[in-house]
């Protein structure tokens, strides 16, 4: 498994899009990272606002539907920006990303967060009145917020994969 990832990272680093980013990396990589962080700001705050509304800590003058209508589209577009800039960073620095433990743990949390968000949307559509059990929804709101906090922290830790010791796939310098 790890050797397959290594081979893929090596192959990717020799492709022309990767070489293009590598040759301009002094400005391109910080630019992509900055846009990625700006999009994270939009995503994290949108999730926070929806979750605070679910928990009853903010937006009392708004229904949950009004809150999701306000933040849902911004969340979706910012997630698209995260996907595009995220893929660009992997293509530009395949070894840095793909051999990092933080990266894979982050991807696991992204998958888990997506699963929970999808579950919430489906249940909300099926029985809009009761919106499943209120306590379940509140727990899921706190859980998604914690998942997103974890995703942000792990994203930055990709730059410091040595913190994971032998769990990191990276060769020690």
């Amino acid at each position: 498994m790890t050797s397959a990832i290594r081979e893929f990272a090596e192959w990717l680093s020799h492709t022309s899009p990767s070489i293009l980013i590598q040759t301009h990396n002094a400005s391109v990589i910080p630019t992509i990272q900055s846009i990625h962080i700006i999009a994270i700001g939009v995503v994290l705050t949108s999730v926070l606002m929806i979750d605070l509304r679910i928990l009853g800590w903010a937006g009392h003058d708004q229904t949950l539907r009004e809150t999701t209508d306000r933040f849902g589209p911004w969340l979706s577009w910012a997630l698209l920006v995260l996907l595009i800039t995220g893929i660009s960073m992997v293509v530009g620095e395949p070894v840095r990303a793909l051999l990092s433990f933080s990266f894979w743990l982050k991807m696991f949390l992204v998958a888990l967060g997506t699963l929970i968000a999808t579950f919430l949307q489906i249940t909300a559509k099926r029985n809009e009145q009761t919106l499943v059990n209120r306590r379940t929804v509140k727990s899921l709101a706190i859980l998604t917020l914690l998942i997103w906090v974890g995703i942000v922290i792990l994203g930055r830790l990709i730059a410091y994969d040595y913190v994971w010791g032998s769990w990191s796939l990276k060769p020690t310098a």
Binding site: G41, T45, L48, V152, R156
Partner: peptide, 18 residues
């Protein structure tokens, strides 16, 4: 340092987003 920097990013995304 990595932990503090990660927490810095977490904070700034919320400052910016709000």
């Amino acid at each position: 340092f990595p932990l503090i920097e990660s927490l810095h990013v977490l904070g700034l995304t919320l400052v910016f987003g709000t």
